[in-house]
């Protein structure tokens, strides 16, 4: 459903991504792995239309989306959980979720569904987002993206700085979304945190994607990971 076709992109004149290609199918978790500064976040931004492409194309459900203005892209059904959460800090939990709901005019049912996944948010609807704990903030960032009933979910390091129980909670939601048929592109630093749930793993290095492997192959042979990440 998502297809990056040899995209080149960067900031201003500094090119970061070089001929990056990858695909995500519905109901699949593709994990994007790479070292710090490899270009994972840049890839996400390029998909969301936040960076102009130098060449190549992004297609969603077969339609090219890279020519659309950025604000039209989420409405197609692409939810984004940015690195570092990027909540609207001065707004309440309820208002952050409302912004997610507005994207595709989702209603109360969607909100109830999302709050069912993250019950801790329900008790804090009127609290300012920047006063939430780190874990709650990450939940809110996920919930905000789920509020637009995404068919494709982009998640950039959703477990950054979280304790194991919180990571587990988020992992369960990710698996649930996959089982509902959502395509998921997941960026992670810690291989072990995602290897168990990923279907395929794409490695990116210096803005080039070097390889895409089945997760089962990596689980069977751990040395493959070390080779690709060079750790």
């Amino acid at each position: 459903m998502l297809e990056l076709d040899a995209i080149n992109a960067g900031y201003g004149r500094a090119q970061i991504l070089r001929d990056v290609s990858l695909t995500v199918a519905p109901g699949e978790i593709l994990c994007l792995l790479g070292r710090n500064g490899a270009g994972k976040t840049t890839t996400m931004k390029a998909i969301m239309g936040l960076l102009p492409l130098m060449s190549g194309a992004v297609r969603f459900k077969g339609e090219p989306i890279s020519d659309l203005p950025a604000h039209r892209i989420p409405g197609l059904g692409i939810g984004y959980v940015p690195q570092g959460r990027r909540l609207f800090g001065e707004l309440t939990v309820a208002q952050n979720l409302e912004i997610g709901l507005m994207v595709r005019r989702a209603g109360r049912d969607t909100l109830e569904d999302v709050l069912g996944l993250f019950p801790r948010l329900r008790e804090r609807m009127q609290q300012r987002a920047d006063t939430l704990s780190g874990g709650e903030q990450q939940m809110l960032a996920m919930a905000r993206a789920l509020c637009l009933e995404p068919e494709l979910l982009l998640m950039d390091e959703p477990t950054e700085g979280l304790q194991p129980s919180m990571i587990e909670a988020i992992r369960q939601v990710v698996v649930l979304m996959r089982d509902r048929g959502t395509g998921i592109l997941l960026v992670e630093q810690r291989v072990d945190a995602v290897l168990s749930i990923a279907d395929r793993v794409a490695f990116i290095e210096n803005g080039r994607n070097v390889d895409t492997l089945d997760a089962s192959a990596l689980r069977a042979d751990h040395s493959l990971i070390e080779r690709h990440l060079g750790v």
């Binding site: 969301m48 936040l50 203005p69 950025a70 604000h71 990027r86 912004i99 507005m102």
Partner: peptide, 25 residues
């Protein structure tokens, strides 16, 4: 109001506002 909410979201984080479909222009 809704337009007020969009205005405040844009003020707080322009890029994320775009990523949530707010027509920042």
């Amino acid at each position: 109001t809704r337009i007020g909410l969009l205005m405040r979201a844009t003020q707080l984080d322009r890029e994320t506002a775009l990523a949530f479909g707010i027509p920042v222009d």
